[in-house]
Design a binder for these strands. Structure first.
Lengths: 350, 350
DNA sequence: TTGTAAGCGTTATCAT
DNA sequence: ATGATAACGCTTACAA
């Protein structure tokens, strides 16, 4: 396998402003002015420079530009997993917004390890980005970002508030959404409703559980702690949890799940158990309408979240000052069938 | 809304190596050596520098570093839509691979407009990235990248070959995959099989159609052009197409779809028509197993694609020379039920 | 082992 | 309107 360390392949190197200046027979600063489009250059010379640029296929070296101006024209986005459809959509929204302003987006996934998260964040920071949009691990203390914030890096958090730092934040109304789910099921006649809560993100999970409890109270139903159970997105775990729920006195006839990964796992578990309780899932997902029955859900709008975060960040970059902001977006109940089923047997259908 | 252009907020500025050197009472290059971890610095001074770095919360300015060394330690990824689950997974794989080598990833979506695609690409190029992984529009002529390639930017294309440029490429065996789908349905007894082909990506669509035709021949079935119909991911269009297929003499009893977006649209259309033909979809998707019946598919592995592209790019960056490579990944038949149904009525079930 | 100084390609400040 | 020239923060000979 032929390898080479010799630079000859790009020995010619890319043309610089100096090359363009030489070719156009003008001074360096004239080229700079033309490239920056700042005007103040005669038509003749402008044309000469433009020709030289075209002939040499010159394009500005952004690093030198950034080093000089201090603005990287880049924002960073840190999420747990870019392949999660929810975050993929958030990133897409951010990226589109950024491109409108001629900014580029650096993305990084941290996985579930807070330590790795900090490493990723630091790596981004040394890039001197104009701003950062971050989904922080809740176990992670991000107080080390305070210095960066003070030094001028604008940071917006999404999905959950950071620990050890006060900053701009965009989240959804988790309590309200979960309470809506319960209310909806109660309206369909359910009196015994269980909550299957995810474990991956503590903040959202707890808020949604709180909303669930509030919803139960609002519906005038008894508070029954045994009806709230933590599951992760493992199908077997869900099967087990469902079995236990079914074995209760007055077993639930309806379920609320707290995020789409959990919803999907529960759906698979229900199929295994051949059970068909009513259910409402927090966080909508692709193909929910093709489930049997179609899944009713509390939709968050990832695009709107990304957009709000990007707008806030862009405003900050543009110079908006003022206290930290907390933007809370609403959720929307999408009725499709699974939440409108009347109470039947128990949760396992047995 | 208070805005300010005054720089005082970050007037203090970030500490530079000079600041660290001053604080540690050493020379500039000593700091540089410590930061680079190159050794050749006495333990005492190393410690002094490290202390100063900690106290000042210094972090290296990557732009200056890049300007000097020429390596951005960044690769760019250009896809049509980062929110497409397939590309999101590809990007995730690339990003993970990159992070292992301490590289960061710049992503950009081009949307469906080739002109925008070129603008995005140029924006990336001026960043002097170490390399680029690109899903190019097929309508787009990317010959302008040739100069960049010559200048040293390594470029790997994925999913489809570029027009107007020869370069490294990672694709899947589209023909074989589609042929496998047909073979599988033929084994289940189907003699009349239709192909619903996507229109969004010409290359993949045509290759998969070719594979479909080959599969039909291999199965000893008659070639019937009317059984191949182009649809996009609009449900109404799919409904119409299915109706037409149903009205044929000897209507199809099984379907092959050429990508997951089409598969999903067809699934929705079939639900509307209450039809249940056998089907195999090219490109697996989340929740395929929860469809009714579970959808059999020809799985491509987006992670493997991203990994292969990243590895190839990284090898090139590391100095691998040699002719352009074309990596063709296999596909895998995932049997779930929809492809194993025996022939029943026509495609609409009527 | 350590420091000095010369650039990397740009932009900005000055004279001209 | 134009062109020298000095930074920007870093790496890397080259000296010491």
């Amino acid at each position: 396998m032929a390898r080479s360390n010799d630079e000859s392949v790009d020995a010619a190197g890319r043309p610089t402003m100096k090359d363009v200046a030489a070719r156009a027979g003008v001074g360096l600063s004239t080229v700079s002015r033309v490239v920056a489009g700042k005007g103040g250059v005669s038509r003749t010379r402008t044309r000469a420079v433009e020709r030289a640029i075209a002939e040499l296929e010159y394009s500005r070296n952004d690093f030198a530009h950034t080093l000089r101006t201090g603005s990287a024209r880049t924002i960073g986005v840190v999420v747990t997993r870019i392949s999660d459809p929810f975050y993929a959509e958030v990133v897409f929204a951010i990226e589109q917004r950024a491109q409108e302003r001629d900014l580029l987006v650096l993305v990084a996934s941290t996985g579930d390890d807070p330590a790795e998260g900090e490493r990723v964040l630091r790596r981004m920071l040394s890039r001197r980005l104009d701003g950062l949009i971050v989904v922080a691990h809740e176990e992670a203390d991000v107080s080390f970002l305070a210095a960066e914030k003070a030094a001028g890096t604008r940071i917006v958090f999404i999905d959950r508030p950071p620990h050890g730092l006060s900053a701009d934040l965009v989240i959804v109304d988790n309590e309200r959404g979960a309470a809506d789910a319960v209310a909806h099921l109660a309206r369909a006649g359910h009196r015994s409703i269980a909550c299957l809560a995810h474990t991956a993100g503590r903040f959202t999970s707890e808020r949604r559980q709180a909303g669930f409890r509030q919803g139960v109270r609002d519906a005038g139903l008894p508070t029954r702690p045994e009806l709230i159970v933590a599951v992760d997105d493992d199908v077997d775990v869900c099967v087990e949890a469902l079995r236990e729920l079914a074995s209760l006195d007055d077993p639930p006839t309806a379920l609320v799940t707290t995020n789409s990964r959990t919803t999907k796992a529960v759906l698979k578990a229900l199929r295994l158990l051949d059970a068909h309780p009513a259910m409402v899932g927090f966080d909508d997902f692709d193909l929910a309408e093709l489930m049997t029955p179609p899944v009713t859900s509390i939709a968050q709008d990832p695009w709107a979240i990304g957009e709000a975060a990007a707008d806030l960040l862009l405003d900050r970059i543009a110079g908006l000052v003022g206290p930290d902001r907390r933007i809370v977006l609403g959720t929307r109940l999408v009725e499709r069938g699974s939440g409108e089923q009347a109470p039947a047997g128990g949760v396992t259908g047995l």
